[in-house]
């Protein structure tokens, strides 16, 4: 097990300089080493072929991987998909997948996780987290959990959040205020770390070589 892919791959693309190796480039850009990236490629292949075998993760395939149901829409999963899809073409390519997951690595710095979480909460991408966005997320969470809160309770918990996070008192939370807020409340980033990412080669022991695909896909 381990990096047999790398060895075969290095033979296949031996004429390339090391810095042109797409897996090596991803390893430099992310918290993953080359062996991790090979293991992630197995997961990517599985997800990207689960509905249409086209080497790209569609939103339906992402939902299928996440919830076991391709039709299960979820505001937060939508936001994560959109942030992973940095090329904004409606699908996640392998490089986007690896760079996105890197933020969730146990070794990724907390400010990086906080910045990603900020973008998740900034639904309309205004550069601020605003009250109506927080309300929308609360309503989505309640619906997902089949819970019912009165409007007064919702207003109360939004007020409390802004009381604690909106230090300037201008009714919106900017990235600096958010960084300070999560530093005081690290539990808010509980889902920004995926323990599985620490030991990927144990998770995906059996992978096959597909070097041409991985190279084309990253580029």
């Amino acid at each position: 097990m381990g990096c047999s892919f790398s060895k075969q791959r290095q033979r296949l693309i031996g004429h390339h300089k090391q810095e042109e190796d797409p897996a090596a480039v991803l390893a430099v850009q992310t918290c993953f080493d080359i062996c991790d990236i090979e293991a992630l490629y197995e997961l990517f292949k599985k997800l990207s072929s689960s509905i249409v075998d086209d080497g790209l993760i569609s939103k339906e395939e992402f939902q299928l991987g996440l919830f076991g149901n391709s039709k299960k829409r979820n505001l937060f999963a939508d936001r994560i998909f959109d942030l992973f899809d940095s090329g904004k073409d409606g699908v996640i390519e392998f490089g986007e997948f690896v760079r996105g997951l890197s933020v969730f690595h146990p070794a990724a710095p907390q400010p990086q996780k906080a910045a990603f979480a900020f973008r998740l909460h900034d639904i309309r991408q205004s550069g601020f987290i605003e009250r109506d966005e927080v309300r929308e997320m609360i309503v989505a969470l309640l619906s997902e959990s089949q819970l019912v809160f009165s409007d007064d309770i919702i207003q109360l918990i939004i007020d409390k959040a802004f009381q604690e996070a909106d230090l300037k008192g201008d009714g919106k939370i900017d990235p600096d205020e958010w960084q300070q807020f999560v530093a005081r409340n690290p539990s808010l980033l509980r889902n920004m770390t995926i323990p599985h990412l620490k030991d990927l080669n144990k998770e995906f022991r059996n992978f096959e070589l597909s070097p041409d695909f991985i190279e084309d896909d990253i580029r």
């Binding site: 994560i80 609360i138 989505a140 969470l141 918990i157 409390k160 959040a161 996070a165 980033l189 509980r190």
Partner: peptide, 24 residues
Amino acid sequence: ASLNAFDIISFSKGFDLSGLFEEK
């Protein structure tokens, strides 16, 4: 301390990517 809005939001299943690593 009581929960604020962001505590509650952080419990969404959609935020929990560990599902991608589990067999369905």
